[in-house]
C-alpha cells in the first residue's frame, strides 16, 4: 500500500464523513460547516489526481463563494421558517434509504466489473509538465477546443445574475395593499363606461367647498392600473365603509 493510496483513503474517508454530517446535522449552519470540510478534502483529492487548477477553483468557488452565500441566506431566512428536524414522512425516508442502497449496489457492481476501453489521451504527466503545468495545459485545451462553451457559460452566469436580481426584488403585494381602501383619481377608464356613444360623461360638478370636504373624507391616491381602479368607487359614489 503506497503512501498515495493511504493519503487518498484518509482524505476520502473524511470527505464522506463530512458529507454524512451535512445530511445528519440538525442545524443548517453545522451542515454548511460540514460541507466546507467535505469540499476542502475533495479539493485535496483533486491535487492527488493532478488537477491543481481545479483544486484551487474548487476552494475559491465552492468554499469561498457559494458557501458564504449559503451562510448569508441562512442568516437572512427567518428561523421561524425553518422546518422541524424530526418531521414525519417515515415512508419517504424508508423509500429513500432503499433507493440509495439499490443505487449504491448498482454503481458498485458497475465499478467493480468495469473494463477500460479506449486509448490514453495525449496529456501524460510528462506532456503536462512540458507545457508548464496543469493550469497551462488546461488553458490550452480550453481555449483551443472550448471557446464557444466558455462564452456560453459567461452568458449563463450573466443570466443567473439577472435572475437572482429579479428574484431578490422586493415584492409588490404589500404596496398594492396600501392602495386599497382609498379613493382614487385615475387616468384610466372608470369601468369602461367612459366614451360610451363617443361622448365623455360629464363629471359631477362639485361645489368649491365640496371638493375640499370630500378630499378630507378619504385619501386620494393615484391608481396605477385599471385593475386597481375596478375595486374603487366610481366618481360620484359614496365610499361604503
Amino acid at each position: 500500500m503506497s503512501a498515495e493510496v493511504l493519503v487518498f483513503d484518509i482524505l476520502g474517508a473524511i470527505a464522506v464523513l463530512a458529507a454524512a454530517g451535512v445530511v445528519l446535522a440538525r442545524n443548517p449552519v453545522h451542515s454548511a460547516l460540514a460541507l466546507v470540510v467535505s469540499f476542502v478534502n475533495v479539493a485535496a483529492i483533486y491535487v492527488i489526481l493532478r488537477a491543481e487548477f481545479l483544486a484551487a477553483a474548487q476552494i475559491i468557488v465552492y468554499t469561498g463563494a457559494i458557501l458564504v452565500l449559503v451562510l448569508f441566506v441562512i442568516m437572512l431566512v427567518d428561523p421561524d421558517n425553518l422546518p422541524e428536524f424530526h418531521g414525519g414522512r417515515p415512508v419517504q425516508r424508508l423509500l429513500a434509504l432503499i433507493l440509495g442502497l439499490a443505487l449504491l449496489g448498482e454503481v458498485m457492481a458497475a465499478i467493480l466489473t468495469r473494463t477500460i476501453v479506449g486509448q490514453p489521451g495525449p496529456w501524460s504527466p510528462q506532456a503536462v509538465a512540458a507545457v508548464g503545468g496543469n493550469t497551462q495545459a488546461l488553458g490550452r485545451v480550453l481555449y483551443s477546443g472550448y471557446v464557444l462553451p466558455i462564452q456560453v457559460t459567461a452568458v449563463l452566469l450573466l443570466a443567473a445574475t439577472i435572475g437572482a436580481l429579479v428574484l431578490a426584488r422586493p415584492d409588490t403585494p404589500r404596496v398594492r395593499a396600501l392602495v386599497r381602501d382609498t379613493a382614487t383619481i385615475s387616468l384610466a377608464h372608470p369601468r369602461g363606461s367612459e366614451m360610451a356613444n363617443g361622448v365623455e360623461p360629464a363629471l359631477p360638478a362639485l361645489a368649491a367647498g365640496q371638493l375640499k370636504l370630500e378630499a378630507g373624507e378619504r385619501t386620494l391616491v393615484m391608481a396605477k392600473s385599471g385593475d386597481d381602479f375596478l375595486d374603487q368607487p366610481v366618481w360620484g359614489e359614496r365610499h361604503q365603509s
Binding site: 433507493l99 440509495g100 439499490a102 443505487l103 448498482e106
Partner: peptide, 9 residues
C-alpha cells in the same frame, strides 16, 4: 431517484 435506479440498472 427511482428513475435513476431503474436506468442505471
Amino acid at each position: 431517484a427511482l428513475g435513476t435506479v431503474i436506468i442505471v440498472g
